[in-house]
């Protein structure tokens, strides 16, 4: 059966959705992720949806569910890389994903997770420490 790979990285788990999400795949991902959070005692979950061309209410609900389930398991979730057209459509649809943290891209998402969990930032690219450096995209 088709599955979306889940990567473990330190105390985080990472998922990058690269295929058109059909409903069963979304359900499987939800199960796999919660199992993986428990197995690896993850503190943070990062879901990259930059390849998704649409997010309808079903996929939106899945993202919300994952965030809620992760929270119960004591892990923070960040959804990153949503495309502008997808964001506009989701809001119009009435789904603003209020319980889900978001970031522009994977890098920012990792920074956000580290900041929330109080883990020291290794890259030294936190704004306060880099007065000259323009944040890169």
């Amino acid at each position: 059966m088709e599955r979306i790979p889940i990567l473990k990285m330190g105390e985080f788990v990472l998922v990058s959705i690269q295929v058109d999400m059909h409903d069963q795949l979304a359900m499987t991902l939800q199960d796999d992720l919660t199992a993986q959070i428990v197995r690896s005692r993850a503190k943070g979950v990062l879901i990259d949806i930059s390849a998704l061309e649409i997010v309808d209410s079903f996929i939106g609900r899945m993202l919300g569910n994952i965030a809620s389930m992760a929270r119960v398991l004591d892990a923070e979730t960040v959804v990153v890389g949503m495309r502008p057209a997808v964001a506009i459509t989701l809001v119009e649809l009435g789904m603003a994903l209020p319980g889900v943290k978001t970031a522009l891209n994977v890098e920012r998402g990792m920074e956000l997770l580290r900041a929330t969990l109080g883990t020291p930032v290794e890259t030294g690219r936190a704004p306060a420490e880099s007065p000259n450096g323009h944040p890169q995209n």
Binding site: E53, I54, D56, R83, P84, A85, V86, I88, T89, L93
Partner: peptide, 14 residues
Amino acid sequence: SLVDQTKLVTAASE
């Protein structure tokens, strides 16, 4: 436009 495409495809999906 990309936004119009996305809105229509999302509505169709729903």
